[in-house]
Design a protein around this nucleic acid. Structure first.
Lengths: 220, 220
DNA sequence: TGTACATCAGTGAACGCGCGTTCACTGATGTAC
DNA sequence: TGTACATCAGTGAACGCGCGTTCACTGATGTAC
């Protein structure tokens, strides 16, 4: 059906079981937090014995890393799909919020409290760059700010390693960064429940921040 | 020396041991994360047996709650001290950043990934309100924005429960919220290490966001 | 089509470990007369 | 000042638990001739 994918029944079965293990893992993270993830508990839920999982993941750490990788991959794909569908920064922002609300624990696995000592492998860092690149692309389409460059813009002009070979001017880099941190600021506090009981609608606040970000680029 | 404090030697000793338990707890959180906190490990570090700690904390959960409470209290005190010293929003922002950098794990215990199922007791919620109140006070001193009210301002006018009986106009409430989320957006990503390798100086970015926040209130 | 062999999923027992927590107890410190 | 008693810090043994992980093994599935 899909062209180049040649899979034996055994390979298909393996992939299926791996997928179910991950599903149960996410369930467990949702229930008790990522640090409480246990291979034995997952196995029990799947009706098999603990050691069986070692056919699919070399260790608990490898499973967690895989979940983190999937989370990054999922956000990168969401961004790419949105861009392919012609989304501007506003579209990206809404895609981000949708992605975050769909699974808060996944969001926190990417942007939440880091585990001391844990260091993500290189390929995950690469996905993170891909995400930033998507954001940069979108921001590059906005009208360039015609006001005077801020001091931080000047600083960014000298520190643009993270942008790779993207040709965006410093003001655009700045915009992308601000996009990221402002939206994250609202989202992470919302998902962590810090707005509950405050009364206002987090989505309206999110949209207000977004509107402010867009205004930033056209005025002054 | 301190007036009304009447303490017996035993009480002083108790307070001292309790304090040391907390210290070791923070060390452990810094080393392995909050979820790895273990009473037995703390006891071992202090050269005493595990059950001894139950003289000081009824359970592991109580210890954690106490640490969370201390973290909130510490931030509230930092804000209050800054305000007493005459700090404006800029001063508060710098106080916040200093507080966060002094102990990132403490910051994340307040604003990081929530533990599923954990619900903070009421007195901690009260401290959180105190923190917001300090921010509101500071923002109230800024020049009122003279531009047209945004749609979100209007929404806030109807949902201001969280501001208690603070007389600030909606635009000020909005400003305080934005202060909070934008600074948190930068701080939390910085502390979580998401800026490492990007090249720019997080502090300059923080200051740029702060400058933008202040501009917001005087223009448009 | 049938047989011999290799591959691989899953099991159950076992390992050592550290956890939170309880309990009965010892010994030191403080208090009352 | 001295004695009798109460308070309380800390110990060590014990509980049951679940964890990650290894190992030798069984039985089913796929492969080669």
């Amino acid at each position: 059906m899909d062209g180049a994918e040649v899979t034996t029944p055994r390979e298909r079965y393996r992939a299926q079981v791996r997928a179910e293990i991950k599903e149960r893992a996410w369930e467990q993270i949702a229930t008790a937090g990522a640090s409480a993830l246990s291979l034995n508990a997952i196995a029990k839920r799947m009706g098999m014995s603990g050691p069986a999982l070692y056919r699919y993941f070399a260790s608990r750490d490898e499973l967690i890393t895989e979940l983190v990788r999937d989370a990054y991959r999922s956000l990168a794909d969401t961004f790419r799909a949105a861009r392919t569908a012609g989304a501007d920064p506003t579209g990206l922002a809404h895609a981000l919020r949708g992605w975050a609300l769909a699974d808060p624990h996944r969001y926190f696995l990417v942007y939440g409290t880091p585990v001391p000592g844990y260091h993500a492998p290189d390929d995950i860092t690469a996905i993170a760059s891909e995400i930033m690149a998507g954001l940069l692309d979108a921001c590059a389409e906005l009208l360039p700010a015609d006001g005077p460059a801020t001091p931080f813009d000047a600083h960014l002009a000298d520190h643009r390693d993270w942008a790779g070979d993207h040709p965006a001017p410093p003001a655009t880099l700045h915009r992308a960064l601000t996009f990221w941190t402002r939206l994250h600021g609202v989202l992470s506090l919302e998902l962590a429940g810090h707005f509950t009981g405050m009364g206002f609608d987090p989505e309206r606040f999110y949209d207000a921040e977004l509107a402010d970000l867009l205004r930033m680029s056209t005025e002054s």
